[in-house]
Each structure stands twice: as structure tokens, then as C-alpha cells.
């Protein structure tokens, strides 16, 4: 049941995800039209409240809202009253006092969106909270993968990179797992979150240290997702040099050639922004089977679907779980 907020990928069961992805497919059709405007959310107000820098997620939410005729307003922490010392609680309560319908929040603190959701009446959408979650990213990755691979049941998705600091990875293992995919995550031991063992047993994904064993082993990937290595982590002692990281965990030209020899259609994903030459080579980023730009395009469609399901419908009936179709069509 899609509720009032979208805070965690764990909020969505398989049926919810499939509903959102089907809706996203209709929204994707709209993007190909000359007139990319639907009256669906006319009169609704959506605030993008970004306490961290973001280009694609914020513009993607902004475009999604605008194409459905909502008024979208961007507030970034720089230049806002946050820089004058206002607390998160006061900021979100001040903004929602202006009768907004949805708050899209990105914040550097894990759990910030959960907190905010308790303080306001508006729908809260998590656009990335600390190292915790980024549910719409996982949805757009699932959308992109389904477009390439069809049903994800049993498909093997390999996620490589800085797992410790990745909210993309956390949301993805949940969403892909819910859809029945088999996920293997690969990272050097220093970039594996502590306690990942218990967690992988609970959510049913595999953890590995050796990338080449996974890529060329008995169970080759059906899709490969490279995560960004945040250069600011470099000083944290997680790995000795960038070169060393690339040799061990980067999708280099050599690795790509070897993969393509077996599966030339292997979808390559990256949530962006990319560090070309570090976790992904230019050849891989621009490869024919790279779906990195498809991910961006899917991002708008998926966010339109999320906004539609959170913001349309009778708020009183929102929690009752009625699909609505039969109310009108079955008995007109």
C-alpha cells in the first residue's frame, strides 16, 4: 500500500513497486510528446528542500512536478535560514505553514526525512538522507533494468563500489530484492558497512570482495551497477590511492572488453555523478549497453509516478487501499 510519504524503499511491497513502475511507463510516454504537460496536480505545491547539493535529483523532481502542473519551488540550504542556524524542525514547519502539499527532502543526516514526516501534514519524499536511503533512485534503477531485462525475478544484479557511504546501494538492495532479483554487492573490506553480514542474511543479498571472481565466475551478472566513489573519502584512509581502487574495483576498459566477449548487451548502470577514470572508464560509461542516460530519463517518469500516487486521490481515503478503477469504469 502506497502511503502518504515515501521515506524508505522498505515502505513499498512488490505490488506497490509494480504499480509505480507501470504508472511511470505511462508517464514516460508523455515525455516523448510535443506537449509535456498534464493538468493532474494543478494547484498543488511541491517544495524541493535540499540541504545537500544535487543537480539531477532536484531538477528531476522539479521537472516531474512541473509536467504535472504542480507549482514546484526549490530551496537549497545555502542562502536559506538554515545557514543562520535554524533547526530542521523549524525549517520544515515554517515551510509547511505555507500550505504546501509535498516536501521533497535531501539531507546529510540519516533519518532526517523520517523526522520531518512526524512534524508536518504534507507528504514527505526522501530524496536522499545521509548514508541511509534514496528510494526514488532505486525505483528508477528498477524501471531501467526492467526495461532492459523484463521481469527481474531471479536476475543477477551486481553492485560495486563504496557501500559504506551509499544510500543508493541501501535502497537498491531492498527494491531489487522485493522484485525477486538476486543482488551481489562488491567492495573492498574498508568500504563494506559494519554489520553487513547480518543484514545481507536478512535481506538476502551476497557480499564479495573480489570483483573479477564475481564478473567472470559461474554466475555472471545480468546487470552491473557501478557506484560513485566520493573523492572526499580519499582522505579517510579507505583505500591507498585512486589508482589502486581502479585496478581492484573500477570498470576499466579491460574488464569491459572481457565482459562484452561473453555478454555484449550487459546493462551498465551508474547513479551519477560519474568519476570517469576512477570507478568507471570512459569506454564503459559511453558503451553501447550503458543505460546511464536512460536512468536519468527514467528518473523523471518515476518521480512523476511517485508524485501522482502520493498527491492525487482523496486524502481521506488514501489509507484505505482502494484501487479506484472499478468505482468508475466497472459501474458507470
Amino acid at each position: 500500500m502506497i502511503g502518504r510519504h515515501l521515506l524508505s524503499s522498505a515502505d513499498l511491497d512488490r505490488h506497490d513497486i509494480e504499480t509505480l513502475l507501470e504508472t511511470a511507463a505511462s508517464m514516460h510516454d508523455v515525455q516523448r510528446r510535443d506537449v509535456k504537460k498534464l493538468p493532474t496536480l494543478r494547484g498543488r505545491t511541491i517544495i524541493n528542500l535540499f540541504f545537500e547539493d544535487s543537480t539531477r535529483t532536484r531538477s528531476s523532481f522539479e521537472i516531474a512536478g512541473k509536467w504535472m502542473s504542480a507549482d514546484t519551488i526549490n530551496i537549497s540550504a545555502k542562502g536559506s535560514s538554515t545557514s543562520k542556524g535554524e533547526s530542521l524542525r523549524d525549517t520544515v514547519r515554517t515551510i509547511t505553514a505555507m500550505s504546501v502539499d509535498a516536501l521533497v527532502i535531501r539531507h546529510s543526516a540519516s533519518g532526517a526525512c523520517h523526522q520531518a514526516a512526524q512534524w508536518v501534514d504534507a507528504s514527505v519524499i526522501n530524496a536522499g538522507d545521509g548514508t541511509h536511503e534514496h528510494p526514488t533512485q532505486a525505483l528508477l534503477d528498477a524501471y531501467t533494468l526492467r526495461h532492459r531485462l523484463g521481469n527481474l525475478e531471479g536476475k543477477h544484479v551486481v553492485i560495486v563500489g563504496d557501500l559504506t557511504h551509499s544510500r543508493v546501494f541501501r535502497s537498491n538492495v531492498i527494491t531489487l530484492g522485493t522484485l525477486g532479483a538476486r543482488v551481489t554487492v562488491v567492495a573492498p573490506p574498508t568500504l563494506m558497512p559494519s554489520g553487513i553480514g547480518d543484514w545481507s542474511r536478512r535481506d538476502g543479498f551476497a557480499t564479495r570482495w573480489e570483483l573479477d571472481d564475481v564478473l567472470y565466475g559461474d554466475d555472471p551478472p545480468d546487470a552491473l551497477m557501478m557506484l560513485r566513489v566520493q573523492r572526499e573519502r580519499m582522505s579517510g584512509g579507505y583505500f591507498p590511492t585512486a589508482r589502486e581502487y581502479t585496478v581492484g574495483y573500477g570498470l576499466t576498459r579491460d574488464r569491459l572488453d572481457r565482459l562484452y566477449a561473453v555478454s555484449p548487451d550487459l546493462p551498465i548502470l551508474h547513479p551519477g555523478p560519474m568519476n570517469r577514470g576512477l570507478e568507471i572508464s570512459a569506454e564503459a560509461a559511453d558503451a553501447t549497453s550503458s543505460v546511464i542516460l536512460d536512468q536519468v530519463s527514467a528518473g523523471v517518469a518515476v518521480r512523476m509516478a511517485v508524485l501522482y500516487h502520493l498527491l492525487s486521490g482523496d486524502p481521506q481515503q488514501h489509507s484505505q487501499g482502494v484501487s479506484g478503477q472499478d468505482l468508475d469504469r466497472g459501474a458507470a
Binding site: I2, S26, L38, Y308, S312, G313, G321, G324, D328
Partner: peptide, 17 residues
């Protein structure tokens, strides 16, 4: 997505055009 009663009904599923 063009209906005028979206706010008066539970969320409707969208079909393909």
C-alpha cells in the same frame, strides 16, 4: 490524468495511451 475528480476518489491506476 485529466480528470476533475482526482481529489474526490481514491488514487486511480493509469492506463497506457
Amino acid at each position: 490524468m485529466h480528470r476533475d475528480d482526482l481529489r474526490r476518489q481514491p488514487t486511480r491506476m493509469i492506463a497506457r495511451t
